[in-house]
């Protein structure tokens, strides 16, 4: 038995939701107001455009940071989110990178999954 032995595999998944609040303080984002049919107007559309531009830029910045820090990521896009996944970077390191660059925990959804390493009872 050795301290450095590992008996599990850690899978880290960052989900960046495109149309949520995106970490903003207000109760709902302009996009959420628009998609819930709470009054549509040119101003709301422009606010939604600004929100989406801001949000996508934030997501792209977070992705760049994570990709720069680590080369082994699985990337995928879904209709409402972008997903990054790895089994080779500890989630604490990834969190630290994002926090150090001013990103808050509510700008992404972090999921940690463990599976047993081969041969473990």
């Amino acid at each position: 038995m050795r301290a450095e032995n590992e008996t599990c595999v850690q899978k880290v998944r960052f989900s960046f939701v495109l149309f949520g609040k995106g970490g903003r303080k207000e109760r709902e984002s302009p996009w959420q107001r628009l998609s819930r049919n709470k009054g549509v107007s040119p101003e709301v559309l422009r606010a939604s455009k600004d929100f989406l531009t801001w949000r996508l830029e934030r997501i792209a910045a977070m992705m760049e940071l994570l990709l720069a820090a680590h080369g082994d990521w699985g990337l995928a896009s879904r209709s409402d989110q972008v997903v990054m996944e790895t089994e080779t970077l500890d989630f604490n390191q990834a969190l630290q990178i994002l926090r150090q660059h001013g990103f808050r925990d509510d700008e992404f959804v972090l999921t940690v999954e463990y599976s047993r390493k081969w041969g473990v009872l």
Binding site: M1, N5, E6, T7, C8, Q10, D90, F91, N92, L110, T111, V112, E113, Y114, S115, R116, V120
Partner: peptide
């Protein structure tokens, strides 16, 4: 491993629990 993931326990801690 299931609950270690749910509560975001450290990898080495889950390894120790498994051992």
């Amino acid at each position: 491993i299931a609950i270690g993931g749910s509560v975001k326990a450290e990898k080495n801690h889950v390894s120790v629990a498994i051992s």
